[in-house]
Write a protein that binds this DNA or RNA. Sequence first.
DNA 1: CAAAGTTGGTTCATTATTTGAACCGTTGGT
DNA 2: ACCAACGGTTCAAATAATGAACCAACTTTG
Lengths: 261, 261
Amino acid sequence: MGTVSKALDLLDCFSKAQPLIGLTEFARRAGLNKATCFRLLTELQDHGLVEQTGPAREYRLGPAVLRLANLREAIVPRKEAALPVLRALAQTTQETAHLSVIEGEKLGMLAYVYASTHATRVTMEDAEVLPFHATSSGLATLAFCDAGYRDRILSQTLRRYTPSTGTDADTLRAGLQKVRADGIAESKSTYEAEVHSFAAPLFDASGQCVGALAVAAPSSRMTAALRDLIRIELTQSAAQIVALWGGTLPTPLAAQWQRAV
Amino acid sequence: MGTVSKALDLLDCFSKAQPLIGLTEFARRAGLNKATCFRLLTELQDHGLVEQTGPAREYRLGPAVLRLANLREAIVPRKEAALPVLRALAQTTQETAHLSVIEGEKLGMLAYVYASTHATRVTMEDAEVLPFHATSSGLATLAFCDAGYRDRILSQTLRRYTPSTGTDADTLRAGLQKVRADGIAESKSTYEAEVHSFAAPLFDASGQCVGALAVAAPSSRMTAALRDLIRIELTQSAAQIVALWGGTLPTPLAAQWQRAV
DNA sequence: CAAAGTTGGTTCATTATTTGAACCGTTGGT
DNA sequence: ACCAACGGTTCAAATAATGAACCAACTTTG
C-alpha cells in the first residue's frame, strides 16, 4: 500500500462518536508506528485536512474538507439535486431514506432524511461508511457495478455484523443475481438487527453505477403493503435522481422499474 | 516535501474555472512526472477524493470530500454558525462579505454572501485560496497569528498580483504593526484592481487566530462614511462569530473594537 | 511527594518505496 | 496513412519512508 493511502486511511478513523483522536491512539487504530503516524498527520495538517485542538493536542478533521466540498458541489451538485427527492421519499414512505455513493473502494453515506411522524425510526450516523455486503445499498451497488470492481470488493474479508450477515462471497454473488432480476436489493437485519431495508442503484452519465438510494424501516413495521409502497416509490425516486444527475438508466432496469408501478 | 503533500497539492489544482484536469495537464501544473502524478491520482481515487469522468478520463474532485465535510460540520459547526452573521453583515453594509479560515499553510475562503441591491459588486470564486500578503483577510490573520507561523508564510516568495501588491516581507511586517494598532486590516487593490476591503481576525477557544471576516467593496464606492460603517459592523460581526464558535478574543482587541463603536 | 506510567514528539541508521525516462496502445485530427 | 497528443505502464536508480529507542512533560498512583 502506498504512503498516500496510509495517510488517507487516517481520515476515515474519525466518526461522530470519535471526533477527537490522540497520536498514540491514532497509531494504534491505524496499525502504524507512532513516528510514521505523526509524520502523516503533520502532512495532513499542513493542508488543513486535520487540525490539532486544545491543550490535549488531539487531532480532528480540519477545515479544508469544507472548502473542497463547496467546490465539489459547485462542480457536481449531486447532493443538492437529490435532497428534495430524498425528502419526498421519506415523506411518502414515512420511513428513513438515505443516499450513498461509491468513494473509491468504500460506500459513503452522503445524506439521509428521517420521516416526521413515527416515534421509532431507523437512525443513521452522520457520514457513515457502509459495508457493501451487509446493506441493501451495498448490494444494489454491487449488483450493477462492473464485474472487476465487484470482485475486488468481494475478495476482501467480509465482516459478520449480525447472525444474519452473509459473509460467503459465492453466496452473496448468487444473491446479486436475484437483485438484478428484481431491480432492487433487500436486506433483513444483515447490518443492524431489526432493520429491514430496500435499495435501488443510481447511475451517472456514462451508465456506471455510482451509488444507491435506500429506504430503511424497523422490521416490525415491514408489512407486505409497506414493501409494495417502498418498491414503487423507491424505484421512481431513483429514476428521478438519475435524471437530475444527467445519468442514464440501463434500459432493462428502466423497463423493470416501469413494470413495478 | 513528503509524498503525501504532493498528493494533497493535487487537490488544490481544481477550481471552479478548472474543474476537469487530464493526466498530462495535471502533471504539468503540479510539476510532477506523469507516472508519479498517475500513481498519486490513483491513490486519491481509491479513497474517493478524486474521480475520473466521461470518455476523456479527466479527473475531478470526488464524492468523499462531501462525506468528510458533513462529518466536520457535525463535529465543529463553524460554517453553519457563522452564515447568519455573514448574511446580516452583507445586508447592513450592502457589500460582499466573506469568511476565510486557516487551512494548514493556506487561507481558504469558506463562505461568502453578496449584498442584494447594487448592480456592481465584488464577486468571489467558490472555495478560493487567498494569498496572505495581498488580501485584507490574509493581513488580518497574519497580524494576529503566532510569530512562527507568520515567519513561515512571509518567507515564501510573495507574488505580485497588481501594481499595488506589497511583496517585501519587511514592509509587510511593518504594515502588520498598523493592523494590530487598528484592530482591523485594509487592502486597496492589492489582489484585484478596484477592490477595497477590510478584514477582522477570528479566534478559537484557545485564543489562536484561525481566520478572518472581511467586507469587500468596489473602490469607487468606498467613501469615508462607508469605511466607518464597515469598521463598526465588521468588528461587531467578528466578535459575534468568535462568540458563536466558543472562541476568546484577546482582551486588548476586544477593547479596541469596543472603542470603534 | 516521588516513582511509574502516560502522553505527544524526535532522532537516525536501515530499508523499502517512490521516482522518471522511455515505452505502449488508442484516439483524433490532417 | 501519417503524426501528435493523450492515458497508462515498466523497471533500474535514487530518494524518501520507516520504526526502535529516546526525550520531556504531564497524570496517576503508591
